[in-house]
Simulated scan of single mutants.
Amino acid sequence: MPADLRYWTRSSSELSKHPAEVFAEAEEHPIIVTRRDGEALVLMSQCEADRQSHLLELAAQLISVVTDDHGTLAERMAKVFPWMLALSVADREACAREILDAARASFATEQPHLALAELASWKETAAAVATGLGNTDLEWYSEPHLVARP
């Protein structure tokens, strides 16, 4: 197992001799390809590269939020993420805190999915609220209830 759990190492000769095996590994996690005659290269899936790119984009957005000194955290985040305006004031506050916490965890663990999933979850929640899904009174049954077959 590698010292850095994010990357496994293979030599360029291993890549030449067993490309299918190395490519299959690269679909699971990034691979450092070492070379005798040059700097090591990283082989990873496009999906992984996209996740890292999205995390950097989120980092830039959050830096702009935390360096702005006008308004509350939720107000500043709503400037960067206008979909947050569909949420209630209390939900905006929770959203801001939870996205920042998830981003901190992502940066600390180098796991982009933590922050990206939290951001996507809140954005989908805001979209659902915007369509009126949060305004429906629900009727809860305490006992099993038979319904007609569709």
Rank of each mutant, 00 (worst) to 15 (best):
L114G: 03
N135K: 10
A102Q: 06
D137G: 06
E98W: 01
K79R: 14
V80F: 02
A20C: 03
Y141F: 12
F23C: 03
M77C: 12
E28S: 07
A126S: 08
P144D: 13
S53P: 00
E27H: 06
K123G: 11
T125P: 02
Y7C: 04
D91V: 01
A90L: 15
V33I: 15
A108Y: 10
H145W: 10
D37N: 07
T34P: 06
A20R: 10
D137Y: 06
D37Y: 09
R149E: 11
K79C: 09
G38W: 01
K79P: 00
A60F: 03
I99P: 04
S13I: 09
D137S: 08
L119E: 00
I32D: 00
Y141Q: 07
A96R: 09
A86R: 13
A120S: 13
A74R: 04
G134L: 04
R51L: 11
I31F: 03
W83M: 08
C47G: 03
S13F: 07
A128N: 10
V65P: 00
W122C: 05
R104M: 11
V33C: 00
A90F: 05
A24F: 10
K79W: 02
S11K: 07
A78R: 12
D50Q: 12
D4W: 01
A59I: 05
R92H: 08
P150Q: 13
M44S: 04
I32Q: 02
S16I: 04
E21M: 06
I31D: 03
V65D: 00
P144H: 08
V33D: 00
M77R: 02
E39Q: 04
Q46E: 03
W122V: 06
P144M: 06
C47M: 09
E21R: 12
T72W: 01
T136Y: 14
A108T: 13
L43R: 04
G132F: 05
E143R: 07
G38P: 00
H29A: 03
A74Q: 11
S142R: 14
A128K: 10
E25A: 09
H54F: 12
M84L: 05
V129D: 02
L100Q: 15
S121C: 14
D68P: 02
L62M: 09
T9A: 07
A130H: 12
L133G: 15
R92C: 12
Q111T: 14
E110C: 02
R149T: 15
A148C: 01
D50S: 06
V129W: 08
P19N: 03
M77L: 14
V42P: 03
P19K: 07
S53K: 12
A90R: 15
A60H: 08
L62A: 02
E110H: 10
E98N: 05
G134K: 09
E110M: 06
D68M: 09
A130V: 07
R76I: 15
A127L: 14
